[in-house]
Design a protein around this nucleic acid. Structure first.
Lengths: 244, 244
DNA sequence: GAGTTCACTCGCACAGCGTACGATGAGCCT
DNA sequence: AGGCTCATCGTACGCTGTGCGAGTGAACTC
């Protein structure tokens, strides 16, 4: 029995050399499709992306897409990897691991928040696209140059990614929910806190603390919160680096 | 213009006192439905949950569910909160903040991994159910007793939740993907690494490091990784606590 | 030039989805 | 008996992802 390939991600098929584009007007191309998909996702969210809508946005039939992409899931894999492509990193040779890690974290946060639908995807498909690998790889070598090695290196990288992802997820979830309604953020904060008061009636301390904080600007607050946890984590990693 | 309520989560409507159950055989109840939904989700994943399937599992018509739950989304909110109910916490009065935080992290990790569909939901809806609030509240008071206060308290709690969530998300994503096919984990590890080799052909260092690690048991490895980042974060928090 | 092949597009159809709506019945109050 | 409320359900609508086969036109072979 040959070892069957059970799971086929888009990335598993290495792209055929693709020859020269035989036709002059292919009209549709994988890149074009993915780009349009990302636009649609950004504009209207995950639920709004249907093959028919995407097709008509591209000026073609819905099923034409299936020539270039075998699946809706694979299309989403491609779209997700497009998000990772926005994560820019400083040159690890000139910057210390600490700063590179921080840059990665902020870059990833920004990329994900710019495409909040992406968090929903991360939980349901592996992120092994070329752009994702490129970003991780850059972070990883920076940390290695900084002195991390072996399992510790892997763990440290993973922890940074984890924290960033986890901190960003609820933020993106918020953006998703807000985006689905037509209201703007300020209205939402009011609504939300009203609901928290109802839902959390049994946790008055929590509510009290919440109220005391959220007079401040929400966006700035989230950024501060992200920064606090990130630097705590990096400090903890530095500690581990020096004591080995 | 009255301040319209744009977003209505399940939790916003405080439960009517519910009187005495008028009928002796309501046959369907919100709790019953949510429980069945969680079972179905656990057994077959997020995509497998449809109102019709859930209805037939409950021995009732699909649309009967809508009497007890106004929405599929709200049903999912309820199911998600059910997951948080499994997060057990030690008494914050007897245990230090450090251990309580670790217990929370491990508890949440375990709960989420036991219901891997939950991560997909967290990114698309707010987690303000009673059980979620209870868990956060317990962690929060423990940290407060430990000496954290004000914004710092909020930030610290948030960072712990973030890290835990972020570390668990890819794990759950993995479980989701594996679960969708029928293969077992060992087969998958092989397939996956084969794909990584193809997809990551341009990042040989990454692949090399990957290979050197994953001879070890995957599950145990993930746990070690989780532990490493968690204790790094907690150390970083402790540092901030003492230097204030 | 005729015929064949290939790369690509598309319309149709199918099974399944969430859920609005109105009909139906079971138990209670008067 | 009549009416009211709670709960259940069948039907129907518009939507979804996608398999399939037909269609199109350019590029190749003879």
């Amino acid at each position: 029995m040959p070892p069957k390939q059970r799971f086929t991600s888009v990335w598993s098929r290495q792209s055929a050399p693709k020859a020269t584009p035989v036709r002059e007007h292919p009209a549709l191309s994988r890149d074009h499709i993915v780009k349009a998909a990302v636009e649609l996702l950004d504009a209207e969210g995950l639920d709004a992306l249907s093959m028919r809508r995407l097709g008509s946005r591209l000026g073609s039939g819905a099923t034409s897409i299936y020539w270039h992409v075998s699946n809706k899931d694979q299309l989403l894999e491609l779209a997700l990897d497009e998000v990772y492509s926005e994560v820019r990193l400083p040159d690890p040779d000139v910057t210390g691991w600490h700063d590179t890690a921080a840059a990665f974290a902020y870059g990833m946060r920004e990329a994900v928040l710019g495409h909040p639908w992406s968090v929903t995807l991360i939980g349901s498909m592996p992120s092994i696209g070329p752009n994702a690998l490129k970003a991780i790889s850059a972070l990883s070598t920076a940390m290695q140059l900084g002195g991390f090695a072996g399992v510790t290196l892997e763990f440290a990288v993973s922890s940074i990614v984890s924290y960033t992802l986890g901190a960003t997820t609820p933020e993106a979830g918020w953006i998703n929910t807000v985006g689905r309604s037509g209201a703007d953020q300020a209205e939402w904060v009011a609504d939300m806190s009203a609901q928290l008061h109802i839902a959390g009636a049994e946790h008055p301390e929590l509510i009290a603390r919440y109220d005391s904080l959220h007079d401040l600007d929400v966006t700035q607050m989230r950024r501060l919160s992200f920064d606090y946890g990130l630097s705590a984590l990096l400090d903890g990693l530095a500690l581990r680096l020096h004591q080995t």
